[in-house]
Each structure stands twice: as structure tokens, then as C-alpha cells.
């Protein structure tokens, strides 16, 4: 039974990733990517990692994929972008290298597997305890929360609406860029001078 589900989820993940590379339209690739993510989530469940599987569905399928779909909606389609020659020309060597490397590693390394694996229980509580133990992962946990905050503020700052000149100026992209940079530095100057004026 477990083998049957492993084959099902592994086929979903592999077919999803192959279709992501191969399909012509970006939207189709995004939905193939969703299949790949769901297959990997199923494999996580088979590995007894229930918390990671739920996080995978929530963050990858519910967050990153929606973000990618927004990116697709805000950019024009490019129907002549895929070239079969280029995909195969990179694909065959990359698959040959990865396959050869995997074969070599598999023939040399003897993986140590515990002989009698315990039946996996719920993992949320042990992971939470490991994350918040001072001699565990407390410092990386806090650091990664700061990274997340910085990424949030930074992406909002980068993606905010600019002045009308810099948005439409495709013919004078250089002028638009320098204007945008000038506008940014002006905005920074205003932001830094504002609290000083109040106090």
C-alpha cells in the first residue's frame, strides 16, 4: 500500500516538474508546478513529516504559486519564448550529468538506514520544542524571522508605485532609470528628514 502511494506521489512530482520545463505557456507551467508541489507534499506525508507537508501546501501552493500567478498576470505572454532546441540542448546534458553523478554516488556511498523505523507520530510539537530550545535552533529561528521581515519591507519598497515618468518611459529606459533612482533618493531624503522636522 505504501509503495503504491509512493509511486503515485513520485509520478505526480516527476511529471509535474517535467511538464513545468516542457510546456509552452507560463500558466500551464504554473499549474504543472502545483502538481509537482502537491506530489512532494504527499511524499512528505509518506515520510512521516506531517507538519512539513502542511507547511508545503500552505506556503508553496497557497503562497508562492499565487505570487507567481500574479507575476504571470502582470506581464505579457511570450508565445515564441520556448525553443525545443534550447530545452533539449540543455536538458539532455543536465540530466546526463545529474544521472551520472547520482549513479556514481549511489555506487560508492553506503547509506546508513536505521533497521527498524518507528511508526511516525505527530511532529509539530517536537519541531516546536526544537525551534524554541536555547541550545537548539532558537537563534536561527529569530534570525530567520528578521530575514522574513526585511524581505517583506524590501519587496513592498521595491514594488511600490513610482512616478508616472519612470513607469511609461520605455523608449528612454536609461533616463527613466536615472529618474527613478533620483526619485528614490529624494523619497529617502524626505523620509529621513520628516521625523527630524517633527521633533
Amino acid at each position: 500500500m505504501e509503495t503504491l502511494f509512493f509511486i503515485l506521489f513520485a509520478a505526480l512530482a516527476i511529471a509535474g516538474s517535467l511538464a513545468t520545463v516542457w510546456l509552452r505557456y507560463v500558466v500551464h507551467s504554473a499549474f504543472a508546478l502545483m502538481a509537482a508541489f502537491l506530489g512532494v507534499a504527499g511524499l512528505f506525508i509518506l515520510l512521516g513529516a506531517d507538519f512539513i507537508a502542511v507547511s508545503q501546501v500552505l506556503i508553496y501552493v497557497g503562497g508562492i504559486l499565487i505570487l507567481i500567478l500574479f507575476g504571470i498576470m502582470l506581464t505579457p505572454p511570450d508565445k515564441k519564448e520556448r525553443s525545443v532546441k534550447r530545452v533539449l540542448g540543455f536538458g539532455i546534458p543536465v540530466f546526463a550529468i545529474v544521472g551520472g553523478l547520482a549513479f556514481q554516488i549511489g555506487s560508492v556511498v553506503k547509506w546508513v538506514e536505521k533497521p527498524d523505523l518507528p511508526i511516525p507520530g505527530p511532529t509539530a510539537a517536537p519541531i516546536g520544542r526544537a525551534l524554541l530550545k536555547p541550545d537548539g535552533y532558537l537563534v536561527p529561528f529569530e534570525l530567520v524571522s528578521i530575514v522574513l521581515l526585511v524581505a517583506l519591507i524590501g519587496s513592498v519598497f521595491i514594488a511600490r508605485r513610482r512616478t508616472m515618468q519612470s513607469i511609461g518611459a520605455t523608449s528612454q529606459a536609461i533616463g527613466g532609470t536615472s529618474q527613478a533612482i533620483g526619485g528614490t533618493s529624494q523619497a529617502i531624503g524626505r523620509a529621513s528628514s520628516a521625523p527630524g522636522g517633527k521633533s
Binding site: I52, S55, Q56, I59, Y60, G63, I64, L67, I68, F70, G71, V144, V147, L148, A151, L152, G154, S155, V156, I158, A159
Partner: peptide
């Protein structure tokens, strides 16, 4: 996973 989410947000911006 957390770093992937942060990376995707910044990259799309």
C-alpha cells in the same frame, strides 16, 4: 521553506 518564500516575494517585486 521560509527562505524560499522570502526569495519569491523579493524576486517578483
Amino acid at each position: 521553506i521560509i527562505l524560499a518564500a522570502a526569495e519569491a516575494a523579493v524576486a517578483l517585486a
